[in-house]
Design a protein around this nucleic acid. Structure first.
Length: 556
RNA sequence: GCGCCAGUAGCUCAGUGGAUAGAGCAACGGCCUUCUAAGCCGUUGGUCGCUGGUUCGAUCCCAGCCUGGCGCGCCA
């Protein structure tokens, strides 16, 4: 259990005891004790406004309640003091003894510090990126990749079992459009004059794919008789080619999917039709001019949505319902989807359909990752696949590297529209926030190398907490103690940017500490104590950077 | 017209209904004979879009406006 949770338990128990003693009315026990971080250090490390919140209910003054309750919180070994202040806050201060013990705990646990294990871990499926297999991944996909993977990391760290999944849209109109675009390019390359399909894929990469396929599958292609069959074949090969490229880029971005789920298989094994039957049984479907409609207006949608067209072809919506049904039937307790902003309108209807099928809506959590505005020299770059300039994830990786890219995508909250200025990201690469974090880690590694060079033995058991009784050390230790709860919070709320914000605070506190205190000196006991602190900082930085998918270098 | 997201320092953005609203970058001024200066310290910088409401207390919740972006397909 993390520190913050333990402290709110402490307050809860105090309330219980106080009520039992008759010090307060029974209704006091109904109040959920909030524990928060005070804005200022002089107000302690944790604070509860419970007395302010319950004053009206108890018909007593906040100060009176706070003073009465503080007595029951009493002396806890983790606290150095508990104060009751002005309007009625109860402020709690962590003891340096506890913080010091925690330091040793951090070093002992290493990569496990901050992680938790659950008695009954949730099985979670997180689906993200899921770009169309019609070309290379773009910047929006890159953001989704960074965000989704970090959320997955956080949830695994919090003790759940997480599967990363990529949904492959290898079915429908655009697939044959892709096939026809490739066919047109192949014929063009043979010198035939062809009309390029309307709404076809014009990108230069299509020509590359066409050339590859024409070379690799010459024999197979000549054996195919009909034009439609040829288009199907080419579409399939083009998808394979694109998927391989997407997978390669994602792996280089430190993102590995467990499952690449093909939409086509849903249609082939009848799961789509089966889903329609189930929706009909749930009375969610009616016929309208030869179409099957879903009553999504029963679930707050603006209008009912088509499931099957009048020519009998299922819509993407129906397949999507089948897909999410399939996910739940695979036994996941929670399915998380990360969608682009252009899909937000689909949330209501999909949730409605899942509820109609009898699934608990809480099992599906759809997150919207807002758009990315790509800037160069402060100017917006239009994201067209035809323009070759920095529109792909591959270009981004080549240009600024995985560490910088992943950090930039995750440092902002999901909902905020992200301005990504490439010129700035590149130009400022030496003063980039991500280097600030990595530098803290590298600096500590360097300290240990230097200590070894000087023949100092690092034996934490000979450390002496008395040396840590200074402002910089204490602040640093306090941050380190909050790592587990901050990460748990980030996981629970699906807010990966909290990791970046937290690490920034730790790095800041460390750089300050480093400047103020000389670590390697003739005072061996002091050196060892400081090294212990540094070791703990290094552990937390490494664990946090790993969650972000960013490397923690030994030297820079 | 409807829906979603955003509006906080010059720029990019954090901020759990609580106490004197923060960081990075940019600007300016300091700090390396000693463990990594990719660092530290200081200064400048704010009607938290506007107007009401809810309450002991609102940047945060609610309503209505204003501005910007995105979406409103039987494409995926």
């Amino acid at each position: 259990m993390n520190l913050k949770t333990e402290i709110s338990r402490l307050v809860s128990r105090a309330v219980e005891s106080a009520v039992r003693d008759g010090a307060f009315d029974d209704i006091f026990g109904d109040i959920d004790p909030k524990v928060e971080y005070p804005r200022e250090m002089k107000f302690g490390d944790y604070s509860t406004p419970i007395a302010l919140e319950s004053a009206r209910l108890l018909r007593r003054s906040p100060m009176e309640i706070a003073t009465g309750l503080a007595r029951y919180i009493g002396t806890d070994p983790r606290m150095s003091s508990i104060e009751v202040v002005k309007p009625g806050f109860i402020n709690m201060f962590l003891s340096t003894g506890f913080l010091y013990d925690n330091l040793k705990e951090i070093v002992r646990l290493g990569a496990d510090y901050g992680s938790s294990s659950k008695q009954t871990p949730r099985r979670i499926n997180i689906e993200f990126v899921s770009a169309n297999p019609t070309g290379p991944l773009n910047i929006v996909s890159a953001r989704a990749a960074a965000v989704g993977d970090t959320i997955a990391n956080l949830m695994e760290f919090a003790g759940d079992v997480v599967d990363r999944e990529f949904y492959v849209n290898d079915y429908g109109n655009q697939v044959s459009l892709l096939g026809r675009s490739v066919l047109a390019r192949i014929r063009e390359q043979k010198g035939e004059s062809v009309e390029f399909p309307e709404d076809g894929y014009h990108g230069a990469y299509i020509a590359d794919i066409a050339a590859h396929i024409a070379e690799d599958y010459e024999r197979e292609m000549s054996a195919i008789a009909g034009e439609d069959e040829l288009v199907d074949f080419l579409a399939l090969k083009a998808i394979e080619y694109n998927l391989a490229g997407q997978r390669r880029d994602l792996e280089e971005f430190n993102v590995r999917f467990k499952t690449w789920f093909s939409e086509r298989t849903l249609h082939e094994k009848g799961s789509v039709n089966e889903t329609l039957d189930l929706l009909e049984k749930a009375n969610g479907v009616y016929a309208d001019e030869g179409k099957s409609m879903f009553r999504s207006t029963d679930y707050n949608d603006d209008k009912d949505r088509v499931l099957v067209r009048d020519d009998g072809r299922p819509t993407y919506f129906l397949a999507d319902i089948a897909y999410h049904r399939e996910k739940f039937e695979r036994g996941y307790d929670l399915a998380i989807d990360i969608w682009g902003p252009d899909h937000h309108g689909h949330i209501t209807r999909l949730l409605g359909a899942m509820k109609s099928l009898g699934f608990d809506g809480k099992r599906l959590n759809i997150l919207i990752s807002q758009q990315v505005n790509l800037l160069m020299e402060g100017e917006t770059v239009k994201m067209s696949k035809r323009l070759g300039q920095f529109s792909t994830m591959r270009d981004l990786i080549d240009e600024i590297g995985v560490d910088v890219a992943r950090y930039f995508f995750v440092m902002r909250s999901l909902e905020s529209h992200l301005d990504f200025d490439l010129t700035l990201a590149k130009k400022e690469s030496s003063e980039n926030p991500v280097f600030y974090l990595q530098y803290a880690h590298a600096r500590i590694c360097s300290l240990f190398r230097e200590a070894e060079k000087r023949g100092m033995t690092y034996d934490p058991s000979s450390a002496d907490p008395a040396y840590l009784d200074n402002e910089e050390s204490i602040l640093l230790m306090k941050h380190l103690a909050k790592f587990p709860e901050e990460m748990e919070d980030a996981a629970e709320k699906c807010e990966p940017h909290r990791v970046a914000t937290f690490l920034m605070k730790v790095a800041q506190a460390f750089h300050k500490f480093y400047t103020e205190h000389r670590i390697l000196t003739d005072d061996r006991a002091m050196s060892v104590t400081y090294l212990l602190l540094c070791d703990a900082v290094r552990t937390v930085m490494a664990n946090g950077l790993t969650l972000l998918g960013v490397s923690a270098p030994d030297q820079m």
